[in-house]
Every structure is written in structure tokens, then in C-alpha cells.
Amino acid sequence: MTNPNEPLPDFSDVESGSSSASMPEAEAQQQTYTVKSGDSLSRISRQVYGDASKWKLIWEANKDIVRNPDLIHPGQVLRIPQA
């Protein structure tokens, strides 16, 4: 909980930028995610799709390397299909 008497942080020196690019369809189908320690398919799904319940999409796209959806290993590179 934040302290109402605490001064607000200063964000005046924040620098920002942005850019946009079209993506060839072949590459759009090939987004990847490298598994880190502590990851699970549902956690990755939440990070990538914003919805943990879509983990099956990731599993379906990676069944050749992930036979058990509860068992993924750090360093594995997973294909991330479009939701």
C-alpha cells in the first residue's frame, strides 16, 4: 500500500520511443519464446497473450518437443502461435 504522505516519484526524465513494421506472414507464424527457470505454459501464455488459459495453443504448436505440458525446461525454444 502506498503512503499518501510520500512524495510522488519524478518521471520527468523518462525517454520514450516507438516504431512499427509489417511482418512477413511466415515470420508472424514463427514467434518464439525461450523458456526460463520457473516458467510454465500457463505463465508464458499469460505473458504473451495476457490470458493464462490459452496455454493449450502453445502446447499444440510445440507437441513435437513438449510431450508433457507440465514439464518444460529452461532453454527450450517454443513456437508462439497467433492467438
Binding site: D13, V14, E15, S16, S18, A21, S22, P24, E25
Partner: peptide
């Protein structure tokens, strides 16, 4: 960006940094 009319996928990035 939509540089290719037949391409339906685009990726836009935003980034922020702070001097302090």
C-alpha cells in the same frame, strides 16, 4: 505500418528508459 497491402500482420514496439 502497413507497407505491404497483402500483409495482415504488423508489430509495433514502444520503449521507455529513464536517465535516473
Amino acid at each position: 505500418a502497413r507497407t505491404d497491402a497483402t500483409n495482415a500482420t504488423t508489430v509495433t514496439e514502444f520503449h521507455i528508459s529513464k536517465k535516473s
